[in-house]
Amino acid sequence: MTQEHMTTSRMPIARTLLTLALALTLATGCGKKKSGVDPNSLGPVEPPTTASVQPTATITADPVLIDLGQSVVLNWRTTNATVVTIDGIGQVNVNGTQTVSPANSTNFHLTAKSDSGALVEANVRVTVRVPVAPVAPSDATNGGGGGDMGTDAAFHAAVQDVFYDYDSYELRPDGQTSVAQAAAYMVAHPGVRVVIGGYCDERGSAEYNLALGENRANSARTALINAGVAPARVRVISYGKEKQFCTEANEACWQENRRAQFSLDR
């Protein structure tokens, strides 16, 4: 691939040199060899000129196959290039690495350009596995209703929400107890999937609380996974301060709102 580009781009240069040499010969009136220029005599001129300007480039990705959300390290090396660009990233150093996390399978296309304008390209494809939504167990086989997820009532009777201290996402001892109950229930009911909602009290920044809610829900999720629940069974959603359980402005109410709530993920 790269070699092909090199030969095709070298051709016009060779032709130019040839024409130039011919013109020079005629102009200086050195008529002895005007019947033809021996191409071999031009040979030595050509390699140093072109070899010094022809860039080379390689790009690799590690790994080339990822799941959605994972990262890939791009690694590229070029020689004789002054301007190196990667589509979608822009101009980059002539040699370098970059961590990217594409949302879709992507061709990373690198273009290296030398001072003289000679171009060379390199490509690497990163394949992104997008998880296929699990097919819900059909209601027909489970006689409708809750299926093997069980009922909300049974779930909430066995699993308590986790509550957090002010501006914190650390699990307190009572939170660890709640997570242990939830983990036990999920181990006993392998068909159950849960979504953990992260919530914050009404004080403070709406944007920051969305991030804090992510941390709260994820701290409960991590504890569930550490207790043996498969990661694919637990999803998180942060509601920040956008959904309140209790709307009075006092500490009892704020405590109610600082929580990670377990719900069946139907």
Binding site: V100, A103, E214, N215, N218
Partner: peptide
């Protein structure tokens, strides 16, 4: 800000949301 890696971090993508990097 995105929590796709499990913790909220700042990411930068192109204007169409592709090529996100943390």
């Amino acid at each position: 800000a995105s929590s796709r890696s499990g913790d909220p971090e700042i990411w930068v993508s192109d204007a169409n949301g592709n090529l996100a990097r943390r």
